[in-house]
Design a binder for these strands. Sequence first.
DNA 1: GCAGAAAGATGCGTGCACGCAATTTTGCGG
DNA 2: CCGCAAAATTGCGTGCACGCATCTTTCTGC
Lengths: 207, 207
Amino acid sequence: MTGLRERKKQATREALQTAALRLALEHGPDNVRVEDIAGAAGVSPRTYNNYFSSQKQAIVSAIAAHRADLLAAAVTSRPAGIGLGEAVIDAVVASYADPGDHPAGAMLMIASSPALRACYADTATMIEGPLTEAVVSRHPGVDPLAARVLAAAVAAAARIALHQWLHATTTPPTMPGFVVPAGSLPDLVRAALTPLAPALDAAVPPA
Amino acid sequence: MTGLRERKKQATREALQTAALRLALEHGPDNVRVEDIAGAAGVSPRTYNNYFSSQKQAIVSAIAAHRADLLAAAVTSRPAGIGLGEAVIDAVVASYADPGDHPAGAMLMIASSPALRACYADTATMIEGPLTEAVVSRHPGVDPLAARVLAAAVAAAARIALHQWLHATTTPPTMPGFVVPAGSLPDLVRAALTPLAPALDAAVPPA
DNA sequence: GCAGAAAGATGCGTGCACGCAATTTTGCGG
DNA sequence: CCGCAAAATTGCGTGCACGCATCTTTCTGC
């Protein structure tokens, strides 16, 4: 049974997220104070920081929410036949391929603000814990430390892909056709994760 | 020629580092304000944040300084004959094996304060840039994105090792002999990096 | 239902991070 | 030696993050 308590908490969280995103889009990300977001969500400013530990976090969280959960589920639901590398990479790519139902211009705003870019790139590390559990759940034999390290490596690679992509969308005209190989985020994520495949495949005991 | 300017800047930085470390050891890390550190270093509080972007950073920086440079040099100086995995892992392990000349109790203090722990663990990511350059310098053929990803993966693994080690030194008595395999930091770093070796070795073109 | 416990929300106070503009210091020709 | 431009330092003001004490809401056993 989902108590009133938890439902209300979730409602407040979502109210803060949507309010933060809306206000940031309306007035620009740097012209919104925590006080404004809290007010729009009908809550005290102090309460905001009970939900989010930074001012930008509510904004990016509105976009990146649930990615970690989806990813973990995706990893465990891959057939056990394929290698860990393929399973993990496909799952991560899939999680970033889902566009979500965000207001148009949200990603553009994130890409335009350096502070938001950094904060959004950091959401990639949120997959670390769930991914670790998903890996050990899929392959109970692997060393727990190895699972943690590989999950962290995957998260780091995703972060780099995100960073690169955000940088590319804001800085298109630098030496046309020089260092920008892929424009689509899923493709970029796959490219960033591919170098890690050998390590992922080698981690599972050679059954 | 090293101008007066840069030497003075470096002197101020070191003064802030040593002052921060000394005051933290004397009064406890949470009883030292930026104002105190700046005062002890003979500089205005505002100037502190021109050198360090957080209050804890001067403290951990006093311990972790130059590790990135040493590491990069160590990677490039490995014989080209051995694989990239071995070269990188040995270099990272070596960089963490050097104890440095810090006041006794400094590491213990860092391990004891959660905030300092987190900040110190984050110093592991400082190797990312230099390590990327070191890798492409050693193997000009590798894809730059792959080099960045692998460097980030190594940094993430080192961060986990650091985290684990700091956690172990403060929480010794949890089920004796259960999940704590290695006590020495270099050993732990090596154990954390080993799962990445296949990826590192696979990255260099099979000459 | 109800009393007590548990969890959440709020107000307050402190210290921090940092943009900005004014000021001082340093480096470099002339 | 001097003035000037670049760079560093400083003070100030704003908003943020968060510990703590308090009050309110929700849950649980009876």
